[in-house]
Amino acid sequence: MPVKVARAEPEFVPGVRHPLERWLRTDRLPHIWCSGCGLGTALSAFLYALDELGWDPDSIAVVSGIGCTGRVAGYLKLDTYHTTHGRPIPFATGLKLAKPDLHVIVFSGDGDLFAIGGNHFIHAARRNMDITVICVNNLNYGMTGGQLGPTTPVGALTTTSPFGNFEHPFNLVHLAASAGATYVARWTTLDGRRLQKAFVEALSHKGFTFVEILSPCPTNYGRRNRMGEALDELKYYREHMVIRHGADPKDADILPGKPFLVGKFVDLEKPTYLELYQTKAREIGGG
């Protein structure tokens, strides 16, 4: 409830635009995401990164899968693909190989990328496909009603684990690093400018790059785990996140009520799939 009252009277100005509106399909806004969902923040950080990079919009393609995060493709005024469930990475791989000059970005959720499309993720990382994968991790299947997902922490309550989750979840940072990703970072939706910097680094990095964003899910995950409103979830992040660059990805587990690591975990150079393919093709005389 308001404590203070506005002293200055506002002016009404018609026809003004948000600075990011040149990247957005404004006829589709306001978006469908719940009040307090971190997806809008993650999307705006991504758009600020595109602003900073200054790339031609025609040279960018965004691919997303199914789920709340999958809706990103529908809101961007870029070449976007809203693909079948779990398959944004195969689509992105095809796109990158057919048009190597294109900047290909996969923007999807944890369920889409790691449960339904888990196999595609590890193999794209293994081959070092030159794409950027952005995963918004809300720790459950948000769109379908808050079921247990591959990233749900041990002990967390969901619709399909009403007595608490007993399964071992994925540590996405460790998974990406061990599968061969050349850039791995994790941030929360609270880190506006750090997130923008991570996106700029990941997008301009050669090879398979991965950015995980921890996002509140107030409607499903937060409510069932009695974390309160989205605001309380962000306060929880503020109190529990520990920024440690270059930490061992093994230590980046997320446990309820325990501190978790964020930062840049991996940053290395490795020949990409396309480079290796071209080298091989030249070697055997076909290139």
Partner: peptide, 13 residues
């Protein structure tokens, strides 16, 4: 500009 960064709904800038 942090209000603009944190806003998930493009409502403040």
């Amino acid at each position: 500009g942090f209000c603009e960064r944190i806003c998930p709904d493009f409502a403040i800038w």
